[in-house]
């Protein structure tokens, strides 16, 4: 058997993909900061940012300049190693998570046979980063935020996995490209119609997994100042911020691929459909953030353990029975 050589082509491909993903993450954060503040303003009947540039459109630029120029402040008695490791650990895995997403029929960075498992596995590192940040910063709000992040993250991960598993059952593949391919072009042939319960459960858990309101208990600013990232300033905070928005984008892309037909659309399939759908989900996340009040912590856990978990198991069981019968 002839041993093959390391392929330069695939290495270059991987590097280019990583660079594109970083560009996407940063661009997404900039766009979403503006969109979120304008959206909040619209919902709360105020103008939102309007001073910097026309319609306040340069506000994110001003924000990021401020973050870059800010002094890095390290509070006393922090666990140094963990304090600096946490933002990096929050940021790096997200890079990997975008690789198996099929943006278009040809635009997939890494065609992994078990793409779903890869995404779910490395999503756990984000939670770990939040914990380390809260623990290492030697702050009671930080520790409380970290404690809440554990309970919430571990709890909501289960219905999320079970909801995605129902679609995997239906498609018979864990490859994201196959799942997108299995759905039709017309909107009524997308998965959210034949898996309405899984779609609903995924939408709820998606908000909880990204720590967004109404489930933003780990960082609820009126209770815990900023929760796990209270003691981070400058670029440390910026990395958390960037990874939070990147995580939102990731769950939106997964939602688009699993339930909304991926790159398929009524006219002219292509990566533009993936982006339109993902940003529709993002708009939904922003919308409910400014519409619903924050839930109490016991309510948060009760919703998960008493409703979402049994419902997702039931959904999985029904899916399995239907697949067996048909």
């Amino acid at each position: 058997m002839e041993l093959s050589k390391i392929s330069v082509l695939s290495l270059v491909e991987l590097v280019v993909a990583c660079l594109l993903v970083i560009a996407l993450m940063v661009a997404n954060a900039i766009v979403m900061v503006y969109a979120e503040r304008k959206g909040a303003g619209f919902i709360q009947r105020r103008p939102g940012p309007y001073e910097v540039g026309p319609w306040g459109i340069l506000q994110p630029v001003a924000d990021s300049m401020k973050l870059l120029a800010k002094q890095l402040f390290v509070p006393a008695n922090v666990d140094f190693l963990l304090y600096f490791l946490a933002p990096v650990l929050a940021f790096l895995p997200v890079l990997l998570l975008f690789l198996p997403i099929p943006f278009g029929p040809y635009l997939t960075a890494l065609k992994v046979p078990d793409g779903v498992v890869l995404i779910l596995a490395f999503a756990g590192f984000g939670l770990l980063a939040n914990l380390l940040a809260g623990y290492s910063s030697n702050n009671k709000y930080g520790i409380l935020g970290a404690g809440r992040a554990v309970a919430q993250g571990v709890a909501y991960e289960i219905p999320m996995i079970l909801a995605l598993l129902a679609v995997v059952f239906q498609t018979g593949s864990m490859n994201l490209s196959d799942i997108a391919e299995a759905q039709g072009s017309a909107p009524w042939r997308w998965n959210f119609l034949c898996q309405p319960l899984a779609f609903f459960i995924y939408l709820v858990t998606l908000v909880a997994e990204t720590n967004r309101a109404p489930f933003d208990l780990p960082e609820g600013e009126s209770e815990l100042t900023a929760g796990f990232h209270t003691e981070y300033s400058g670029m440390g905070f910026a990395l958390f911020f960037l990874s939070e928005y990147a995580n939102m984008l990731l769950v939106s892309f997964v939602c688009a691929t699993f339930f909304l037909g991926g790159y398929k659309g009524p006219i002219l399939d292509g990566f533009w459909w993936t982006f339109i759908k993902a940003y529709a989900v993002m708009a939904f996340i922003v919308w409910i953030r400014w519409t619903f009040p924050r839930v109490r912590f016991d309510q948060l856990l009760n919703i998960n353990w008493k409703w979402l978990l049994p419902l997702s198991i039931l959904n999985l069981w029904i899916t399995a029975v239907i697949i067996k019968l048909v």
Partner: peptide, 25 residues
């Protein structure tokens, strides 16, 4: 066996280590 590798991370890092952290806290 990428599936086992990802399951290893999903279960041990995503759940077991996080629960250890919870116990420590």
């Amino acid at each position: 066996s990428p599936f086992l590798a990802f399951m290893q991370l999903l279960i041990y890092v995503g759940a077991v280590c996080v629960l250890i952290f919870f116990a420590v806290m």
